[in-house]
Design a protein around this nucleic acid. Structure first.
Lengths: 366, 366
DNA sequence: GTGAAAGCGCTAACAA
DNA sequence: TTGTTAGCGCTTTCAC
């Protein structure tokens, strides 16, 4: 790799000794369009247009080759900041979730990653809860043009209210795993159908007293799941018993506590539907600690599958939903919104909710 | 909020009807230094210096107030791209991991998030394995100045070799959860001590035939853990039996397979040390499927704690290491490297490795 | 104390 | 088919 002897190129990387120019170290050297252009004996404009595949550009084959070669020689890579400044687009999308360690979101994130990569976008990660204390950085990321759009997991906390206020109208957004109206896009899965599926499994097994380990808050997805539980019961002619509803949160610990509460009630169910897998895991361990055998004395079904479900004891029966696909689709909808400027709402139904029957559910045996 | 009637401000946000100017919508309007400066009747330079707290700047109190007020009125936020272009620093650090769903990395990421936020940096997420196919985006992120530095989980795959080649000398890097030499910084935990701790627990319980469910590859951390196993055994006068070493990988599934293999061997151990928590979880379920009772017939100890360990059946005994702190420290070391230009290596020993004894380990009862 | 001007690297419009 | 130019928004140096 040889450079023309040119003062412009002598950064910290070249050293002039007497009349000769010696290349000391290429590390840290970064070529610009101008340098590529000079090396190929063309103007920067052409280089830019060629490298960006401008369809209106007509170049002679040999010029094209010269440019390509020069870019390769100099290991050219466009400066993102300059590009972003010029084009007012950063090529980055933000991803704000509450709990990146929750396997459900882990799966959604993976899908988003995959699709973003495919579309040539980088992903920027933010922790919604970190905002409570450190709002400044998030604020900066949102209002500084660092991201072209945002994928958001909406919860029901103060932090969420803060985020919404901050981002609305500032940046195109798609809300993950939920339904919204109006100016925020959204992707969800069919929570209601999933809930019905889980319930029909339990009902089909012969259960009548089915508890619901739900998630607090008034988010559409929580409400949809609860309604699935309620409607199924009603359709089966089972009267709704409010004492069968307990908050299970979205961690194993909170699920454990919720299940413990439920087991302490006078009217014990013979089965439980946990609206969150992790809560389901906690329910399993609560049963064990209370000496309640699963599935003999208590069936447990969780919403959303995850790798460890198969390695629990007993293996957890779940309804599997297309989380990865949802993440991927979220990116697509955001990209579409960049183009047409309108928000999109979609429920991912492909693949359809799947009942994964494992060991934690069976016919009632008491 | 009123704007001076000024053509520069009439973007898509203001509409001129006849002689009057009406504010239609502020959404999407973004103020620049120039606009703030004009509103405060000063020059852009001062605004910049004031807002960036230039210590050499001396302004009259009332000018300061005017500028601050103007910035507030216009809801000014500096444009990240312009800033990055001018300063050659993006304020972003990259994070490249293999498996963001692995609870171990989840914890490290959380620590990095926390510290990055504190230091005013945003975090960019990349999936190392996505590179195998989609290297282009990663390449762009690395060589385009989008990130000031990179936190990297190093594995032992082709993708890793690719990443190393691409990033070395291009961007300051700190390798996570391992030790390196030379021009890459690194943070690790005391894998050897952790391994010794797990083994002394098992040895202290009276076990002599202790299997090792390891991780393939020649990474320092894997080697350190294996040596901890070996040295402990040796120190206790137990001859090293190669058939006691099986690959358990880093997923529950691979751990399941590894443990199944181990159980099929003629010489069955009475205890197993899994160098990876998830492998430990798989080991538990393999034992169950083979009808081996834990801990009565087989003790299982995992390396690294995670929330679900407490909700398994039996609850998994583990050695807990300061993962969150490691993630946070990684960011600090990277920042330090930005300043002094030299790579740092550190082993996080605070808090010290902790033996968390739960239900999967006991004295040998066979 | 404050203003003016240059320029980071890029792309897009217009000239030639 | 290719070159020239302007300017995105910011920081920084130098002049007043």
């Amino acid at each position: 790799m040889d450079f023309p002897i040119d003062v412009k190129l002598v950064r910290t990387t070249l050293m002039c000794t007497g009349g000769a120019t010696v290349i000391i170290d290429l590390g840290g050297f970064v070529a610009t369009v101008t340098e590529v252009a000079r090396r190929a004996n063309v103007s920067p404009g052409i280089v830019s247009r060629l490298l960006n595949e401008d369809p209106t550009l007509r170049v002679r084959e040999d010029t094209r080759q010269r440019i390509l070669q020069a870019a390769k020689d100099l290991d050219y890579s466009p400066n993102a900041a300059a590009r972003a400044l010029r084009m007012s687009r950063s090529g980055t999308i933000g991803l704000a979730v509450h709990d990146a360690s929750n396997p459900v979101y882990t799966e959604i994130i993976a899908g988003a990653q995959d699709e973003a990569t495919r579309a040539g976008y980088a992903l920027m990660l933010a922790d919604v809860d970190a905002l409570a204390q450190g709002g400044a950085i998030f604020r900066r990321v949102i209002s500084s043009g660092s991201i072209d759009g945002l994928l958001l997991q909406r919860g029901d906390t103060d932090a969420d209210a803060f985020v919404s206020r901050l981002t609305e109208k500032r940046v195109p957004m798609v809300v993950l795993n939920d339904r919204t109206e109006g100016h925020l896009g959204s992707v969800g899965v069919d929570d209601y159908a999933a809930s019905m599926l889980a319930m029909s499994h339990l009902l089909g097994l012969g259960h009548r007293a089915i508890g619901y380990l739900g998630v607090d808050g008034a988010l559409p997805r929580s409400e949809l799941r609860r309604r699935g539980w309620e409607d199924s019961l009603r359709a089966a002619g089972v009267p709704i018993d409010r004492s069968m509803v307990v908050n299970g949160g979205h961690t194993a610990q909170s699920g454990y506590e919720g299940m413990t509460t439920m087991l302490a009630r006078p009217q014990r169910p013979t089965a439980v539907f946990a609206a969150n897998v992790l809560a389901g895991v906690g329910a399993l361990s609560a049963c064990r600690d209370q000496g309640v055998r699963v599935p003999e004395e208590m069936s447990v079904v969780g919403l959303h599958d995850f790798p460890l479900a198969e390695h629990l004891s007993p293996r957890l029966t779940v309804v599997r939903l297309p989380l990865f696909q949802m993440g991927a689709r979220a990116v697509q909808l955001l990209l579409k919104q960049f183009d047409d400027g309108v928000t999109h709402h979609e429920t991912i139904t492909e693949p359809a909710p799947l009942m994964v029957v494992r060991e934690s559910s069976s016919i009632p045996r008491i």
